[in-house]
């Protein structure tokens, strides 16, 4: 292990090269993540061209790469095709609704749980509760849907069996469009709530205990401390995560709606990633798929920048 000097020399004095040479071990460590991003994030970006090109495998018997594929005419043809498709607009609407509900219901849930966990005085119970709450995060959506079927299927689900045993008529959790959205959102909260509390709990531990002591001296009870000390203490974290979540409002998961969907609810479950999969990947229209993906990314960046600006306007630091 290289020894670090007590005081780092400035760039002006020794030059960038010398600086890098001196800390080469640190730069070496950086290589791996840089390679990851270069290989899996930046290199594939060359295929963005497909949004404006005609996908071909061979031209005149010669295999071609993405640079050699012909441009479509007009250049926005794939976008035109996508925007003329009513399924695209339906998918966009569904994406906004499901992500919006996730934002409204799913975003505050881990904050509440973190606040509650923070109030637990019995440490062992707190740890066990936290661990149990994390667990669903490690389950794939295919498994979660399998569990959901066992619980919520109309004729054989455990929950419906219970409702019927209590004299009810059963609920179509998975095969009624409205109930499906409800189940989708609730399962999303269940799956992610524990994992998402980690960052808030970490932020809470960073709050100075003196603030709580001062609040206690001022006569604040638990709720007041939570409201006037804990929440303001984690506000920067909340704002950063909120900005990032808003940035994903048009994006979102593929596996969750894909695993949970069925033919009775496709009107509300087909989100943009599924539209892209059906129309682009399965129907072999890679140009269209890339155009929709690009549209999605651009809108996400706009939302991200706008929400960041808004946060700054209200006196928060934002994410830059």
């Amino acid at each position: 292990m290289a020894a670090f000097p007590a005081k780092a020399p400035t760039l002006q004095k020794t030059g960038a090269l010398k600086y890098v040479k001196r800390y080469w071990t640190l730069y070496l460590l950086l290589l791996l993540p840089i390679a990851y991003f270069a290989l899996f994030r930046y290199f594939p970006m060359q295929y963005i061209q497909l949004a404006f090109k005609k996908y071909m495998i061979m031209i005149d018997g010669v295999k071609v790469n993405v640079w050699q594929m012909p441009w479509v005419d007009p250049w926005f043809d794939h976008f035109k095709t996508a925007f003329a498709n009513k399924d695209f607009w339906n998918a966009l609407k569904n994406t906004l609704i499901l992500n919006g509900l996730d934002l409204v219901v799913g975003f505050p849930a881990p904050i509440l749980l973190a606040l509650l966990l923070n109030e637990l005085t019995f440490k062992k119970f707190k740890r066990v509760t936290q661990t149990i709450a994390y667990m669903p995060h490690f389950l794939s959506w295919v498994i979660i849907y399998g569990l959901a079927l066992q619980l919520f299927a109309p004729s054989t689900g455990l929950v419906n069996d219970l409702i019927r045993a209590l004299g009810g008529g059963g609920i179509d959790f998975l095969n009624n469009k409205t109930w499906w959205v409800f189940t989708y959102v609730i399962l999303g909260v269940w799956q992610s709530i524990g994992w998402n509390t980690i960052i808030y709990l970490a932020a809470i531990t960073g709050i100075s205990p003196e603030l709580y002591e001062a609040a206690a001296v001022d006569g604040a009870g638990r709720f007041r401390k939570m409201w006037h000390v804990t929440l303001p203490g984690i506000r920067p974290t909340i704002v950063v995560l909120l900005i990032m979540q808003i940035g994903r409002i048009v994006g979102g998961d593929f596996d969750r709606p894909f695993a949970m969907t069925n033919k009775l609810v496709t009107d509300v479950s087909t989100v943009i990633p599924i539209f892209t999969y059906n129309y682009g990947i399965l129907a072999n229209k890679y140009g269209l798929a890339t155009a929709v993906g690009l549209f999605q990314s651009v809108v996400c960046v706009i939302f991200l920048l706008a929400s960041n600006k808004l946060a700054e306007k209200f006196g928060e630091r934002g994410i830059w």
């Binding site: 069925n262 033919k263 009775l264 496709t266 009107d267 059906n278 129309y279 399965l282 129907a283 072999n284 229209k285």
Partner: peptide, 15 residues
């Protein structure tokens, strides 16, 4: 390219 798209629509329509 219509096989998949129309198959999805058919199944949804029928179900």
């Amino acid at each position: 390219g219509m096989d998949t798209v129309l198959k999805e629509k058919r199944d949804a329509l029928l179900d």
